[in-house]
Design a protein around this nucleic acid. Sequence first.
DNA 1: ATTCTATATTGCAATATTACGATAAATATT
DNA 2: AATATTTATCGTAATATTGCAATATAGAAT
Lengths: 111, 111
Amino acid sequence: MGISKSDFFTDEQNEISNLMKALGHPARIAIIEFLLKKEACICGDIVNELPLSQPTISQHLKELKNVNIIKGSVEGNTICYCLNLDTLSKIQNYVQLMITTAMKCKPDECC
Amino acid sequence: MGISKSDFFTDEQNEISNLMKALGHPARIAIIEFLLKKEACICGDIVNELPLSQPTISQHLKELKNVNIIKGSVEGNTICYCLNLDTLSKIQNYVQLMITTAMKCKPDECC
DNA sequence: ATTCTATATTGCAATATTACGATAAATATT
DNA sequence: AATATTTATCGTAATATTGCAATATAGAAT
């Protein structure tokens, strides 16, 4: 990403942008949707569902795990991934705050 | 981003990941928060508020505009940017759907 | 112990993002 | 018309992301 200036932004700004960035790739969205579709913590046959190699998917999973959007627990031979509701709620709350704040904007001005 | 395989994902997956990607940079979060703080469609003195050059901010604004998170209207000499509630709601709805779906996950399984 | 299966890591090539100086474009002001 | 002000674009260097083959690791099954 070129020269990063994240030192100049607040911790909260960096945190929320890191969460959003983790969601900012179609493969990672697809992985999340696959986990959702299973409605449970289904393990690593994600590879069979997506047109990506096993290392690539492992890497995307790692990125989602790094920001705590998913958590994985070892289940014998396989690993059981599932979504982390706390982190999703954090995102939800932030977007909700944006919306309620933005709605205060007077309609007779430009927006 | 290296070789992109967005053709293999659904339009919806690509759309939501593009929105998230646009929010995936602290400078763009800071720009949005600046617009929110003003509670109105305040124009281009964002440059004075952020530790980034004018071309860089212009580029970030363009990215936010490309995905319709903000809209800008020419206001004489300056440009009046404001948040687009429709797009924010789209993000909100998606995150909400993720959460409600994820909550169906049985608690006796791994998550 | 050896083999099988599932996942992670490493190394690297291809591509994308970020940032900014220089410059252009467009409107406002004098 | 000339100048100032505001925003956009171009060019380019630095860095990050993406994807995969090859390989490593770890537990299960034989």
